[in-house]
Write a protein that binds this DNA or RNA. Sequence first.
DNA 1: TCAAACCCTCACATAGGTGTGAATGTCAAG
DNA 2: CTTGACATTCACACCTATGTGAGGGTTTGA
Lengths: 124, 124
Amino acid sequence: MRIGELSERTGTPRRLLRYYEEQGLLVASRAPNGYRDYSEGCVNRVLQIRGLLDSGLPTRIIKQILPCINDPRAIHVSDATPETIATLENERQRMTDRIECLLRSREAISGYLDAVRRESAVAA
Amino acid sequence: MRIGELSERTGTPRRLLRYYEEQGLLVASRAPNGYRDYSEGCVNRVLQIRGLLDSGLPTRIIKQILPCINDPRAIHVSDATPETIATLENERQRMTDRIECLLRSREAISGYLDAVRRESAVAA
DNA sequence: TCAAACCCTCACATAGGTGTGAATGTCAAG
DNA sequence: CTTGACATTCACACCTATGTGAGGGTTTGA
């Protein structure tokens, strides 16, 4: 598919799809006329990228994480340097921290919203 | 406590503590000489701020979320405009999305790391 | 054939969080 | 009294993700 379709299906500006490619997060083959040609799997890939970006991860890290997600069972362990492993372990820990922080905050918000609802129920 | 101590105890540059105050995330009283004077609770507050920032939330949103967390049971429902409520509900959903994205990715990383470990165990 | 819609690259601009340093004031210790 | 550590404000600079538009080529349909 071309960039316009991918853009629509993922709700992502074309500008960013090109940017993600430039950052090495996304690959697209080229049609004879130079147009980008995306595979079907790119849709989920882009959604994953956006989710991680929105969760505070920089593209540099996402680039290292994506192979773990993307390669379905076809894991190339060989090209995993100890350095990459260390990065991944470190990043997993940071994700855990983020998750816990978000869970706590979400709980707090929920508690607050419940209280508000109770109050407005009383007022009504 | 003064800014230096808070900085050390939270691992946060002074510059940022001042920035958080400027953004309305953090309040500090002032000593007669003009120095900021932080309460004990600021330590956790700063850690929470940093966690949320690292999870992709902008200060503008954190500012609205903090009262839910900070005010221990003393919830001022009265000053919660419908607009704020809507923001909070929306933001809670976004947090849920983030959490799910992070959980998925963490699972994937774990799976990958496990595979690597199995492989290196075989090679050994 | 012409217009509209799509694609390309290039490049400057913006916003938010953060780094860094200047110029200055305060305070404790030698 | 002076030095050094710590505080203040102000301001410029940076990085990264994103907005926006110029200038130009390609495809599609009237």
